[in-house]
Structure formats: structure tokens, C-alpha cells
Computed example of a mutant assay.
Amino acid sequence: MNSLYTSGVRQASSLQADLERLRNGENSAALLGQISASLAAMNRTIDDYDSMAKREIIKAKQEKAQMRVQKFRTDYTELRTQFEQLKAKAAAEHAAAERADLITGASTSSSASDARRRFQTTPAESTLHPGLRPQGDQHAESPFRGPSPQPGFGTTREQHALHEHTFIQNTESKLDEFLAQGREVLDNLRDQRNILKGTHRRLLDAANTLGLSRDVIGWIERRSTQDWYIFLAGAAFTLFCFYLIWRYFG
């Protein structure tokens, strides 16, 4: 039980250090997955320590262990809350930065489109004599003129970029969840491996005990047979002595 308590204290210290790194601005996917896995491992450690505390026979030790469990659960709740807040804050800052970049890019694209539109709609001064200039529409459409920009093109592009950014964020969140689940599965496999090792050791001890018991039973049976022979020999010798006493002194 002391080993579980030490493990819980170490996990809490490690989580505080990781949260401090996250608070300082390091919000990588690897760090988020590591914190999620550490929280899951700490929760399992608390549950194991609680179950062992309930099986404690000595009342004083049981009460002390229960107080430690309550403190562990309080620390776990606080660490979990801090992690959720820092994660939400980092996601909001990242989304705001991405949105600002997208708006800046869209504004630049709109400015370039307006410049092209002004360049295309500005009538070019003809070098012909005024009498030779065409009397019709001087702004006739030229076959070499590019297509006029469609209204709402910048908005559509911005929406597409925002949709792509949202998709990337969701993908990162799913990857973090998969990493956390993988770490949790790995920890569970390690725990099961330790349990199987302990079971194997107990089975070997039981087999050795059964083998020793079988040897002891065989030794007892052989000793019983020897004792029976000794008893018969002693009885025969006693009867022979009685016969001699009766024969010569009777």
C-alpha cells in the first residue's frame, strides 16, 4: 500500500509539472496526450489504493489511508479542472490566431481582386485621331479581358479555409484521444501482466506445496509400515519372554 501511495504522489508531481509546461504555452499534441494518460493512470492508482485501504485490518491505518484517498481525489479533481481550462484556453487562442490569419489572407485577396477590377474597368486612352475613334461604346468587352471577379468569392474561400481548419482541429483532438486510449490500454496490459505473473507464482508455490505434501504422506506411510513391523517383533519377543518365565519359573 505504501508503494501505491508513493506512486500517486509521483504522478501528482509529474502532472503539476506538465500543467506548468502547458500554462507556459507549450500546447503540443504529445503533451496533451501525455497529460490525459497521466490523469487516467492517477485515477486507477487512487482506485487501487482505495480498495486496499478498505481491506486494511488495523483501524488506525485504515483511517489514515482513507484520508489520503480523499486528498488524492481532491488533487485529481483540481488537476483535471486545470487541464480542461488550459486546454480550452489553448484551443481558443489557437483558433483566434488561425482566424486572424485567415481574415488577413482574405483581406489581401480582396484587395488584389479590387485592384484587378479597377485595372480592368479603367478605359484605356486611344492614340487614334478623335475623328477616327469609334462612336460606339468605348467600354466594349475585349476578348482578351479576364473574367470579372464574382461577388462573394473571398467569403467562400474564407469559409472553406475555416472549414478546413475546423477539420484539422477535430482530427488533432481525435488523435489525442486515440493516444490517451492507447496509453491506457498499455497500462492495463501491464497491470494484467503483473497479475498473471503473481498468479503464476502462486500456482508454482501451490504445486510445490502439493509435491511436498505428497512426499510427506509417502514418508508417513512408510514409517507406519516400519512401526507395524517393529510392533509385531516386540510383541513376539514379549510373548517369548513370558513363555520362558512361565516355563522355568512357573
Score class of each variant (00 low, 15 high):
6 T>D: 06
7 S>P: 00
11 Q>T: 02
12 A>Q: 12
18 D>M: 14
18 D>Y: 06
18 D>P: 03
21 R>W: 06
25 G>W: 02
28 S>F: 07
29 A>F: 06
31 L>V: 10
33 G>Q: 02
33 G>H: 03
34 Q>K: 12
39 L>D: 08
46 I>M: 06
54 K>H: 09
54 K>Q: 15
56 E>D: 14
57 I>N: 11
64 K>R: 09
66 Q>I: 06
66 Q>L: 06
73 R>S: 02
73 R>P: 00
74 T>K: 08
76 Y>R: 09
77 T>E: 11
78 E>F: 06
84 E>L: 05
86 L>M: 05
91 A>N: 09
96 A>W: 04
102 L>I: 15
103 I>Q: 05
106 A>R: 01
110 S>E: 06
111 S>V: 07
111 S>W: 07
113 S>N: 12
113 S>M: 15
114 D>V: 02
115 A>E: 12
116 R>E: 14
117 R>E: 09
118 R>H: 07
118 R>M: 13
119 F>Q: 11
128 L>C: 01
131 G>F: 09
132 L>G: 05
136 G>I: 02
137 D>F: 04
138 Q>Y: 04
142 S>T: 03
146 G>I: 05
148 S>W: 08
150 Q>I: 15
154 G>N: 15
155 T>Q: 14
156 T>H: 13
158 E>V: 06
161 A>W: 00
161 A>Y: 02
162 L>T: 04
163 H>S: 15
167 F>W: 11
168 I>E: 09
171 T>N: 06
172 E>V: 09
181 Q>F: 04
182 G>I: 00
185 V>T: 08
194 N>E: 14
194 N>M: 10
198 G>S: 07
198 G>E: 15
203 L>W: 08
204 L>K: 07
204 L>P: 05
209 T>M: 05
210 L>D: 06
213 S>Y: 05
218 G>Y: 02
219 W>P: 09
225 T>C: 02
225 T>I: 14
227 D>E: 13
228 W>M: 10
228 W>E: 13
233 A>V: 13
238 T>F: 11
240 F>R: 09
241 C>V: 08
242 F>I: 14
242 F>E: 04
249 F>A: 03
250 G>W: 00
